[in-house]
Design a protein around this nucleic acid. Structure first.
Lengths: 212, 212
DNA sequence: ACCTGAACACCGTTCAAGT
DNA sequence: ACCTGAACACCGTTCAAGT
């Protein structure tokens, strides 16, 4: 397994003129469209370029390879996701831990479901390209925000919060992914989402410090 | 997104002579080796054939396309996983639900870790090919076995067991996957595995029927 | 019954030539 | 400064020819 040096994965150059900004936008949009319409296995640079209305050469002027293109699309999506969850965590500062759990789980699920097509297609395609690094960044932002949030709970203090938090977030990410992979994402908005929240609450409850 | 008709994904013909059984074995083995050594993006039919010591044509005599090859490798692995978990569930029939949770979670994690390389590489490559159907089959076998097991618990009865069981298994599958994707699979054998078991237990406890 | 490998269509990527 | 598209190497797949 060869790790792709991350440099090759950055955009080749920044657009400097209005014309090329439009081009890059069109390429992003076309990438998602091709993924949605034709599936990951038909995500070819030629197809994306054609759909974006430019030549392949142009695409390669902005993205050194197909990976970089897909990487950029993921980056936008994952940054947005991390932004939203961070904001939700900040908003809960000092509140009750049950509300925190609800906000964290709820926001994550909401964002994933708002863009359910993109979510699914990115889960599906995530492997044709090495996106692990990006996912790890997003994960760590959320982990940090969530840690700070739970540590600030007004109604409890927790033992081993870091480890518990790690587990809880992997539970959340993994469970949501399982439901998406199995095309059962709709259930997340209902009873299943609530079950996840109560699992969070029980686990937190069990980890409360009881100083004497 | 085009669903691959499942027929094209079956092995093209059954080997009838000792010679060809060996060939098919060699091809399976070579597939895993190439995946492990070169990564999913370099899994090419030519490479597999070469590593197996046969010509490409021979490979195509037994597998109609690259998908079918990868599909077959997954099938073996997932069948084995379902077999093991089913056996563990059967062994717990009539016991306490906490022991059941420990056995279910423990067996699943143990099998995944026993073959950690293959596990990781199959998670990684799972998308280059449509394997969703296979995963769904394995999942449903485990779901059925687990449902029967928990329904037989000697120390409790549960409300809405089917829904709860669905959530619990997606939690298990998803969480394990998250730790593997993040290359933190070792943690599953220790404290994290225990945390998953206690989350199972709290959720089950909360769902106990209390008839009056 | 099984195997071989040259041949074909297609994809990622490049680069000389254009505006 | 940006764009084009023919050209090249490589991969999936086929099939006529071999044992």
């Amino acid at each position: 397994m060869i790790a792709t040096p991350s440099l090759t994965v950055q955009a080749r150059k920044e657009p400097r003129q209005a014309r090329s900004t439009t081009t890059v936008e069109a390429i992003y949009e076309a990438t998602i469209q091709v993924l949605l319409a034709d599936g990951p296995s038909r995500l070819t640079t030629t197809r994306v370029a054609k759909r974006a209305g430019v030549s392949v050469g142009t695409l390669y002027q902005y993205f050194p390879n197909k990976q970089a293109l897909f990487y950029a699309v993921n980056q936008r999506y994952l940054d947005m996701l991390a932004d939203r969850v961070e904001a939700a965590c900040r908003a809960q500062h000092g509140q009750n831990y049950a509300d925190m759990a609800r906000a964290l789980v709820g926001t994550y699920i909401t964002v994933k479901i708002e863009r359910r097509d993109v979510t699914r297609v990115l889960y599906l395609a995530a492997v044709e390209v090495d996106v692990a690094e990006l996912v790890e960044d997003m994960t760590q932002r959320i982990e940090a925000a969530s840690n700070v949030m739970f540590a600030s709970a007004g109604d409890a203090e927790f033992d081993n919060l870091a480890t518990l938090n790690l587990t809880l977030l992997n539970v959340l990410f993994g469970t949501v992914r399982s439901f998406f992979d199995r095309q059962m994402s709709d259930l997340l908005e209902g009873a299943i989402g609530d079950q996840i929240v109560s699992m969070f609450c029980s686990a937190l409850e069990a980890a409360r410090s009881h100083p004497r």
